[in-house]
């Protein structure tokens, strides 16, 4: 356990993954995450947890720190246009969490792919005010 923690700490603080020691990190959409990479590595769960309560209880649907928004950029189709599932090692969240040995149960309930993966169900990519705001550049 201690070993695991130190590995995680090593990756978080030195960015060791770039040198091949850490998990394979699938390529994301866009240039920059909603927070600096180092901040996300250390605190992404805080952001998601906070957003979770804000959204569920208060209806605050900002996308900056939402789980859906994570998936929008970080879960991308392969060459054949297929989106990885959370059960597969090529899934962004799964990959790192398996490496870090921390079980997450988000995808027991939540969709594990971005909206566009559900192309067949076009009703779910409807135009809404939120969608309009989603296209704003991230502050």
């Amino acid at each position: 356990m201690l070993f695991m923690l130190s590995v995680v700490a090593l990756i978080a603080f030195t960015g060791a993954s770039a040198e091949g020691l850490g998990p394979f990190i699938p390529k994301a959409k866009g240039e920059q995450c909603v927070e600096p990479t180092q901040v996300m590595r250390e605190r992404h769960w805080e952001f998601i947890l906070h957003q979770r309560d804000e959204t569920v209880h208060k209806g605050i649907r900002t996308t900056r720190h939402s789980l859906k928004n994570c998936l929008e950029c970080h879960v991308q189709p392969d060459e054949e246009g297929r989106f990885p599932r959370s059960s597969e090692p090529t899934h962004f969240c799964t990959n790192c969490h398996v490496f870090a040995g921390i079980r997450i149960d988000c995808f027991e309930c939540h969709a594990d792919r971005p909206h566009e993966a559900y192309g067949a169900i076009s009703r779910h990519s409807r135009l809404s005010l939120n969608d309009m705001f989603r296209k704003r550049p991230v502050r």
Partner: peptide, 28 residues
Amino acid sequence: LTEQLPDAPRGKGCVESCTLCVHKVDAG
């Protein structure tokens, strides 16, 4: 459960009911 939709997270071991389509309401 598998194949949940992005706007309707649901899963084993929890109770659920009509949400008055809260995702549609919040989307205006």
